[in-house]
């Protein structure tokens, strides 16, 4: 994962491309966990404990988020 600068407000700055993005609070939490090196499984476990939603739906949401980060070149990720 690139050295993204993540602000409390949810603003993320990519120092390599110079682009900035706005994230909601959930995405900020997930991105922090990715930056800390947590595995996808660990993040999913955290989400199941923390959020009230269907487990499959959460998995799809996380996958979508990771895909988006990958599309923007912020993360090298491919579904196993």
């Amino acid at each position: 994962m690139r050295g993204l600068a993540l602000a409390e407000t949810g603003f993320v700055f990519d120092p390599v491309s110079g682009f900035g993005y706005n994230l909601n609070l959930t995405a900020v939490t997930l991105l922090r966990k990715l930056q800390e090196g947590d595995s996808i499984e660990k993040i999913l476990k955290f989400m199941r404990e923390e959020y009230e939603a269907d487990s499959n739906e959460m998995e799809r949401d996380l996958e979508q988020f990771l895909n988006r980060l990958s599309d923007y070149g912020l993360l090298n990720w491919e579904k196993a």
């Binding site: 700055f13 120092p15 390599v16 491309s17 110079g18 682009f19 900035g20």
Partner: peptide, 22 residues
């Protein structure tokens, strides 16, 4: 290096942010 954030009609960068891309 900087990425142009704001470009005038003449193509001049009137806003930009410093990047560090190896």
């Amino acid at each position: 290096s900087m990425r142009k954030m704001l470009v005038t009609e003449k193509g001049k960068g009137f806003g930009g942010v410093v990047v560090q891309d190896p």
